[in-house]
């Protein structure tokens, strides 16, 4: 559906060129939700603008439905853009137009007849649950409602793809959740493929099937959400995970605990709750597990449990119990203090 092949974008600057996006490859399959996460300045905004060519890549291919957008004439590009919806961090609604007009004006400008415009505005304002706000102006709406209008505006052109540029970053957590639910709904019910960029791991956690971690313009790690959440490799990815779960323990605490036994992180995927396994460990091996931290993360495609335990006992017994846990499908990792 969306494919980037070796895409590169360089911005000229006074003290040397800045490579905003470097050799990025990305493939969003039809009907999926993919997320790009990165810190400010990682190149996320440039990356998403390369997909509808608001930024022209210096090299590489941008394919949507198999068409390379970089080869299109301005007129054909304009046509293609109509099938690629976009929503923004700051909503980008016209202040001087009502909710109805904010959705209707682009349709009119694109040449749809009056009845079709009316039909679509009604339909999509209903989908975003703003049917009662037709005559309100953006200044009378909350942030979440403004984003809903922007989503209705994007949907009204019945796009195949929706690009979301930090769409929830200006919203409070509760409103963020309601907008994410809406995105899930339109993905599921309208079959729209979504690519979003964000700096919030919770957004990825809630709605993404697949994740790319962007740093200094390059994708440094990628994988399905479940894989990335259970088995992060790069420090940046781990840091993002730390923002949504208590993963860190202080060095002094870990060192103190390690005077006796080991400190281990156990990761369970799916139904495996963990508690019976730990009970078995103490029964079978005579190792005493002490739970230091525990949490459960609900991802779009599954549940991940995370435990940090202090195992006290003879070293060979500890090793045997770790082996046992591994055999039961639990990932184990020795914890270093950070």
């Amino acid at each position: 559906m969306i494919k980037l092949e070796n895409v590169k974008k360089v911005f000229p600057a006074k003290n040397g060129n800045v490579t905003a996006v470097n050799n990025v490859n990305l493939h969003v399959k039809k009907g999926e939700i993919h997320g790009v996460i990165g810190y400010s300045g990682a190149g996320k905004s440039t990356l998403i603008r390369l997909i509808n060519l608001l930024e022209k890549p210096d090299s590489g291919k941008v394919l949507i439905n198999g068409t390379d957008l970089t080869t299109l004439s301005p007129e054909n590009l304009r046509q293609t853009r109509q099938k690629v919806g976009m929503i923004f961090q700051h909503f980008n609604l016209m202040k001087t137009a009502t909710v109805y007009d904010n959705v209707a004006i682009p349709l009119k400008l694109l040449g749809y007849d009056k009845q079709e415009v009316e039909k679509r505005v009604e339909k999509y304002l209903k989908i975003v649950e703003l049917s009662d706000k037709h005559h309100s102006y953006p200044s009378q709406l909350s942030g979440g409602q403004k984003q809903r209008v922007a989503i209705a505006r994007a949907l009204s052109q019945e796009p195949d793809v929706l690009l979301s540029d930090e769409a929830t970053s200006a919203l409070d957590p509760e409103t963020t959740n309601s907008i994410l639910d809406l995105l899930l709904k339109i993905n599921k019910e309208l079959g729209i493929t979504i690519l979003l960029i964000t700096h919030e791991m919770s957004v990825i956690q809630k709605i993404c099937d697949y994740v790319y971690v962007l740093e200094k313009g390059e994708i440094i790690e990628q994988g399905s959400s479940i894989d990335l959440f259970t088995n992060p490799d790069r420090p940046t990815t781990k840091k993002f995970l730390d923002t949504i779960s208590q993963r860190k323990l202080s060095t002094s605490l870990v060192e103190q605990l390690k005077l006796e036994g080991t400190v281990t992180r156990l990761t369970f995927i799916g139904e495996n709750t963990g508690q019976p396994l730990l009970a078995q460990v103490s029964q079978k091996f005579g190792v005493v597990p002490n739970i230091l931290t525990a949490n459960i993360m609900e991802l779009k495609n599954g549940i991940i449990g995370n435990l940090v335990v202090h195992l006290v006992g003879e070293q060979d017994k500890i090793n045997a119990s770790l082996q046992f846990l591994n055999d039961q499908g639990v990932r184990t990792e020795e914890v270093e203090g950070e």
Binding site: N52, L54, L77, R78, Q79, T80, R81, Q82, V84, G85, M86, F88, H90, N92, L93, M94, K95, P106, L109, L110, A150, R153, Q157, L163
Partner: peptide
């Protein structure tokens, strides 16, 4: 005029003149 609005309309494939 907010540049973001203009960008949104460009992204929708609307003509510069419009």
């Amino acid at each position: 005029v907010d540049k973001g609005i203009i960008e949104a309309y460009r992204a929708m494939g609307i003509k510069t003149r419009q």
